[in-house]
Design a protein around this nucleic acid. Sequence first.
DNA 1: ACGAATTGCCTGTCCGAACAAGTAAATCAG
DNA 2: CTGATTTACTTGTTCGGACAGGCAATTCGT
Lengths: 167, 167
Amino acid sequence: MSAEGPTCPDTNPAEGVPVPACARNGPVSHAIFRVARLHRMHVGQLLRRVGLHPGQELVMMHLWDRGPQRAADLVRLLDSDAATMTRTIQRLEHAGFVRRCPCATDKRATIIEPTAASLALRQQVENIWTELENRTLGDLTAAERTETLSILERIEHNLIRAATQDD
Amino acid sequence: MSAEGPTCPDTNPAEGVPVPACARNGPVSHAIFRVARLHRMHVGQLLRRVGLHPGQELVMMHLWDRGPQRAADLVRLLDSDAATMTRTIQRLEHAGFVRRCPCATDKRATIIEPTAASLALRQQVENIWTELENRTLGDLTAAERTETLSILERIEHNLIRAATQDD
DNA sequence: ACGAATTGCCTGTCCGAACAAGTAAATCAG
DNA sequence: CTGATTTACTTGTTCGGACAGGCAATTCGT
């Protein structure tokens, strides 16, 4: 059985990464996929230590940064989904990192504010981002880091342009 | 209210991207995050046209590539989760792209094989990867594409090393 | 051959993300 | 002022991903 496989003994032994056929049509896309996956794993691992789930830390950082916000503001800031934001806030509230106060001037709106308890998290989260950056960049020189950032921003720009332009 | 915000009027008008405080500690990490997000959006958009959800296409490509596989093989190939694979296969089976046959030699195992109907998808999925790569790379020259791939692979290697090494 | 691990798969739970739909409040047009 | 529209938020559903169990079949050690 398994009587197939004329194509591709496609496993890259150097990394632990099986390379599917997609790599042929889009090697960079596949690399982005793998890097993003690893990156998310690291974020998740680091955040779990402080009791946060990936995504929640972004909400908290914006709150620490800009102070109390309406839920809708957070949605716009994170370019997220209102539904996702509602539930993320509910979980942060349940975890005690966030408080929800009805807005005085607009009864539809809810003001989200970081609790005092959350302030203890702030330094930890910033350390996490530093640690994450170190793990990501590893041995890259300063010049290479600049180059990396430049390339990523060009890719970002390409993807934004492709999204708005056509389809 | 919203009586805060001495820090950072942090929105980058060039791109539609709000820049949270994290960017200070990890500009490259944040760029990876944004690129990954956009990249995933494009994959999702392209895949929806052919009736697949992100992630399902990888299973199908491995099946097309290597022929019928056990579920456990797919888990290892995609470095995925057995539970996730079970449900992904159930959905692909329900969609008619995959068939599940009990393995003759090991009664625990299930052989997953692509259906004839799925073969019509294959070319479409390959086109999607080509289109995705084009959107991603946009105007980059051949040399720049090589450079990009090289950098991404170095980052990948850094992250793998950081994961296995410490913690 | 027998019991103990291991392997393969499934289920339930919790999380984020996206989409659709609905409710309430505010705003706008006539 | 009334009716339509927009805005803010919530809920429900479906998806992938991760983790914790659980069951059955297989393999290993004795």
